[in-house]
């Protein structure tokens, strides 16, 4: 989306080096005359309701049945890949530093902050198993799960795809992601496992067999599930 001078983020132009710009009034610019919303990174935003999320998921379910979760994952995956490129550009602009040289946790928090402002929820990244080739992401207040409520199964496939796409581009290695615990299963928060495809397939198999997030963590830490 090309920004015109009228809709470019004025506060950002005034304070290009301001890093704490995630409060509602700072992050979003409401262009009343144009009927548009621009965010700090000059991306156009659209406000949607919970009805929109329900409509999207149910419509997809009706069209393609159980394949809808795979489609949501794929949408997320492509989104994450594209977003990683946009992120690299704005990170470099804002911090005058290549993302490759930045502290990893700082980089990840910086990537996720726009999503927090946009209402996608807060997260917590658990990198303690990174050397073993997998990691966990806890997500609080998933927009999808919060909307659907307790439906007894994981529903945040869009997020799983988003994480897989973003991290695949960032580490330049093919990664997959699966949600192993979801607010929509009656849990208090969502939990994602990110890693190589073999491991994620193993986790999916264990889940089908009835394993919960704790069982999966235990089995992975015991070295099961391949590389």
């Amino acid at each position: 989306m090309v920004m015109t001078t009228e809709t470019a983020h004025r506060l950002h132009q005034k304070f290009p080096k301001k890093h704490n710009h995630y409060a509602l009034r700072d992050f979003f610019q409401f262009n009343g005359d144009y009927g548009t919303i621009t965010d700090w990174n000059d991306t156009r935003n659209v406000l949607t309701s919970e009805d929109f999320i329900i409509g999207l998921l149910e419509g997809l379910q009706e069209e393609v049945g159980d394949a809808s979760s795979a489609i949501m994952y794929t949408i997320g995956l492509e989104w994450g890949k594209i977003d990683s490129l946009q992120f690299e550009a704005w990170f470099e602009r804002e911090f005058a530093m290549s993302p490759r040289r930045a502290n990893l946790m700082f980089l990840l928090e910086t990537w996720w902050w726009p999503y927090i402002s946009q209402g996608w929820g807060r997260w917590e990244v658990d990198m303690s198993d990174r050397k073993q080739g997998f990691m966990f992401i806890n997500l609080f207040d998933s927009a999808v799960a919060r909307t659907l409520g307790d439906v007894g199964k994981p529903v945040c496939h869009l997020y799983a795809g988003l994480f897989a796409g973003f991290f695949t581009e960032m580490v330049r290695k093919q990664l997959s992601c699966i949600e192993i615990q979801c607010y929509s299963m009656g849990e208090t928060y969502c939990k994602f496992l990110l890693g190589g495809r073999e491991r994620i397939d193993a986790a999916a198999f264990w889940m089908n067999e009835g394993a919960n997030a704790r069982d999966i963590e235990k089995r992975l830490r015991a070295g099961e599930g391949g590389q």
Partner: peptide, 12 residues
């Protein structure tokens, strides 16, 4: 405006 963001950065 500041603390919520800064908390995550300091933790990082």
């Amino acid at each position: 405006n500041l603390l919520s963001w800064f908390q995550t950065i300091m933790r990082a």
